[in-house]
Amino acid sequence: DYYQTLGLARGASDEEIKRAYRRQALRYHPDKNKEPGAEEKFKEIAEAYDVLSDPRKREIFD
């Protein structure tokens, strides 16, 4: 679930989605986080943001 990936509730505003993405992206960015799995988590976060930030894709997902 993309909302869960970003730590959001369904119905989150565009601003909340953007804030959550930035927070998670900084936390799991491969240059900042060298833990195994961080790069994969970063890709999941980017995919979630891509879907939720686009109104058309978000409507299909919801």
Rank of each mutant, 00 (worst) to 15 (best):
D1R: 09
Y2L: 05
Y2C: 09
Y3C: 00
Y3P: 02
Y3M: 01
Q4A: 04
Q4C: 14
T5K: 05
T5Q: 09
G7W: 01
G7D: 10
L8K: 00
A9I: 09
R10A: 09
G11P: 04
G11H: 10
S13G: 12
S13A: 09
D14G: 07
D14Q: 13
E16I: 02
E16C: 05
E16T: 04
E16V: 03
I17A: 02
I17L: 09
I17F: 01
I17M: 02
A20E: 09
R22F: 07
R22M: 12
R22L: 15
R23D: 15
R23M: 10
Q24N: 10
Q24P: 01
Q24A: 09
A25V: 14
A25W: 14
A25G: 11
L26T: 10
R27K: 11
R27F: 13
R27A: 14
Y28F: 04
Y28R: 04
Y28T: 04
H29I: 06
H29G: 13
P30D: 02
P30N: 13
D31C: 14
D31P: 05
D31E: 15
D31R: 06
K32H: 01
N33G: 13
K34C: 06
K34D: 06
K34G: 05
E35S: 11
E35K: 10
E35M: 12
P36T: 15
P36E: 15
G37F: 12
G37N: 08
E39N: 14
E40S: 13
E40G: 14
F42A: 07
F42N: 07
F42K: 03
F42S: 09
I45L: 11
A46F: 04
A46H: 10
E47M: 08
E47S: 07
A48N: 02
Y49D: 05
Y49E: 03
Y49L: 04
Y49G: 08
V51I: 11
V51S: 09
L52M: 03
L52Q: 01
S53W: 00
S53H: 07
D54K: 10
D54Y: 03
P55T: 09
K57H: 09
K57W: 00
R58Q: 05
R58I: 02
R58T: 02
R58Y: 02
R58W: 00
R58A: 02
E59V: 07
E59S: 07
E59P: 10
E59G: 06
I60T: 15
I60W: 06
I60P: 15
I60D: 13
I60C: 11
D62L: 10
D62G: 08
